[in-house]
Amino acid sequence: MTKPYPLQFQPEMKERIWGGRALEQFGLTLPEGSIGEGWMIGDHPNGTTKVINGELAGKGLDEIREAYGREWFGTKGFSEKNGRFPLLIKLLDCNDDLSIQVHPTDTYEGLPEGELGKTEMWYILDAKPGATIIYGLKDGVDRAAMEAAIAEGRIMDTLQEVPVQAGDAFYIPAGTVHALCAGVVVAEIQQNSDTTYRLYDYDRLGLDGELRDLHIEDSLNVIAYDGAGASRMTTEGVADGQWLTIASSPYFIVEKGIIRSTAAYETPATSFVILIVAEGSGKLKWADGELALAAGQAYLLPASLGGYELDGSLTVIRSVVPA
């Protein structure tokens, strides 16, 4: 039986019409084209990442899930709906504006079979001066007002646009209308879902040269017009050795930590731990070895790993599934 150890994966790179080449700044190897998404840890039919380190190198996350089960992922480390790994971890390069979109909850009847809803959070890794995002509806916008705005070509009038800078964190529950805009690089922690409903896409052509599909009826059905609990915060005040909770949901708890010397931690029995290095470099040490840590990389620590140490000069985004 393979002893548990921290896993690093080969990212699945996705070309998007709004993507660019910014993920190269993290030393990632990109294929040709406009790369908008790097799926860093994924167990989904549209992208399953494979291990690149240690004894399990070459194995997909799905294979590891099937072989090692709750011993590695914890008692809460599975989706109750489809049995898959419950989270999808991405890096996003927004070289252009994304579509105005919204995601469904797990209970929406229109979901594809076996698919989850999509609650997510963003941590802004980099933002050009003046960068903004679309984040929720203006006060008083209900379904009738949204339908009228779409019909009259003025949907942008219904939306809140907010400025962003590196270090900002946004919690985006399912039902929240949103869009990343040009000039930001983002770490995204989300439910393991690839379902997006587009309300508006600037009449752009897709990679196939055709207008991209909109999903107006589904969008109108799943929007939380009275709000779904979205929240945002700046995270600049985190002190060395502290962990600040930047998103808390039924699907994930995400914290930001600053490491300037060696710090010891323990994996919980109920959940794996995901570490995303936002800045800096260092080492991850455990009883049987150590692994180099670098900005823009993501690491999956099995629940059964036990004690581990972080050492170096690091800004880390840490995620677990709630007990």
Rank of each mutant, 00 (worst) to 15 (best):
P302T: 08
A278E: 10
Y123Q: 03
P112K: 03
T262I: 14
Y299Q: 08
D157E: 15
E309G: 04
D213R: 15
L284I: 10
A294Q: 15
M1G: 14
Y5C: 05
E15G: 02
E210I: 08
A151R: 12
S304C: 14
L244N: 06
G27A: 09
E120G: 01
T267E: 03
G74S: 09
L30H: 05
Q191L: 11
R204F: 05
D240L: 14
G54K: 06
G153E: 10
G27I: 10
K81R: 13
I259G: 00
V102T: 06
V177K: 02
A298C: 13
A278L: 02
T107F: 14
T49P: 01
G206V: 09
I64N: 00
G58V: 05
L88D: 00
F26R: 08
G77M: 00
M146A: 15
L7Y: 05
G175R: 05
K59V: 03
L305I: 07
S271T: 05
F272V: 01
W39A: 00
G237I: 11
Y5L: 10
Q160S: 15
L305T: 06
L220D: 07
D213E: 15
K118T: 04
I274W: 02
V321T: 13
K50P: 02
T234V: 14
E115C: 10
I41C: 08
A187W: 03
A230C: 11
I258H: 03
D96N: 13
E71W: 03
G206H: 01
Q165A: 15
L180M: 11
V141E: 08
V277W: 02
G77W: 02
G20F: 00
I17M: 04
M40P: 02
G54E: 05
A179N: 08
I317M: 12
G306W: 05
T235V: 09
T262W: 04
D62H: 14
P45Q: 08
R198I: 09
I246K: 07
E266N: 13
P11E: 07
K59D: 10
I124Y: 01
T158E: 14
T270F: 14
A67T: 15
Q165N: 13
A149T: 03
Q101F: 07
I253K: 14
L180R: 03
T75E: 13
G114L: 03
R65I: 10
L91T: 04
Y225V: 02
Y308M: 04
P250D: 10
V321A: 09
D93A: 07
S249N: 07
D139W: 04
P11V: 10
W243R: 12
Y265W: 15
G36Q: 01
I17V: 12
Y265Q: 05
R318P: 06
L291I: 12
P31N: 10
L199D: 04
G312P: 07
K256H: 08
E279V: 06
G307T: 13
L214E: 10
G60H: 01
A67Q: 14
P322L: 13
G54M: 06
F252E: 00
E113P: 06
P322Y: 09
S219W: 04
T119K: 04
R84Q: 11
A187E: 09
V177L: 13
D97T: 06
A22S: 15
Y108M: 09
G140F: 08
